[in-house]
Amino acid sequence: MGLLGVYLPELALLVGLHQGGVHHLPAWDHTLSAVFHLLWLWPEAPLEARLAALFHDVGKPLTRRFDPEVGRFRFLGHAEVGAEIARASLFWLRFPKEVVERAAGLVRRHMDRLPEERKALRRFFLRRQDLLPDLVYLMAADRLATRGVEREAWEVLGRYEEVLKDPLPQRPLLSGEEVMALLGLQEGPEVGRALKALLEAQAEGRVGTKEEARAFLLYWRGGREAQASGTPDHPH
């Protein structure tokens, strides 16, 4: 009926767009397959996740470049470009701001790769905690809509389930006021950096009590001071 070009002209550009590589389907067919697999994996997927699956490759027409070294087209930066296109398109369609921002955030992050090492993996999920579990299902659906990397979908889901066996921390063990008193800081960005570092240390399993949190932050401050002065924090 031609309605795609009327309401979602950004997505209409994906129709017939050849991809190559692991993509055996043109970009629009791959997009529909990703939406299908998202709902197959997660029937109760919220609106934001569904929109993200629909828009996840919308940046490809603008980033499509032929790479003679690999002999095929590549789409470097399409996730970042796609996030901005998705944001503009969804705002134009009058979706609520919180829906738009979450969908755009999912599009921006859908190409992220999971780290191999356990501590790095927990940091990865901690830093994207506001997009979970949507991001995990989107990454899995994207892989199931391709050929030859379907196994990665189950790896993504399995590693996420493994991380959840030891739930990620929701807040730092010390408050902002406690951090300021401990490190002699005034209210400002450095307090936020200290709290972020502490939360990541908790996620990694290096810190589990308030006493360990204080010791960690004192060590963390020493490292930052040494870095600022240009001297090694572990002299030989």
Score class of each variant (00 low, 15 high):
224 R>G: 15
165 K>L: 15
32 L>E: 12
63 T>C: 10
37 H>K: 10
159 R>T: 10
224 R>K: 15
87 R>G: 13
30 H>A: 03
82 G>F: 13
84 E>V: 13
8 L>C: 13
115 P>W: 11
28 W>V: 03
145 A>Q: 06
139 M>P: 00
50 R>C: 14
164 L>W: 11
123 R>D: 06
57 D>M: 05
9 P>A: 13
65 R>S: 10
59 G>K: 02
46 P>Y: 07
196 K>Q: 08
71 G>C: 11
32 L>W: 05
66 F>D: 15
124 F>Y: 11
46 P>L: 05
212 E>M: 01
163 V>R: 04
68 P>A: 15
63 T>I: 10
55 F>L: 09
165 K>I: 08
13 L>M: 15
38 L>T: 02
56 H>K: 04
71 G>M: 08
61 P>E: 08
1 M>E: 08
82 G>S: 03
234 H>F: 04
214 R>I: 04
85 I>S: 05
81 V>N: 06
154 W>F: 07
118 R>S: 12
156 V>I: 06
6 V>E: 04
171 R>D: 01
54 L>Q: 01
167 P>W: 00
90 L>C: 14
16 G>P: 04
40 W>C: 13
224 R>H: 12
97 K>I: 15
214 R>P: 00
225 E>V: 07
181 A>E: 14
5 G>I: 01
100 V>N: 06
225 E>L: 15
147 R>K: 08
197 A>D: 02
153 A>T: 13
77 G>Y: 13
124 F>C: 02
156 V>G: 00
165 K>R: 12
128 R>W: 07
179 V>H: 09
97 K>Y: 13
138 L>W: 09
20 G>K: 02
27 A>F: 08
131 L>N: 03
31 T>D: 13
134 D>Q: 04
144 L>Y: 14
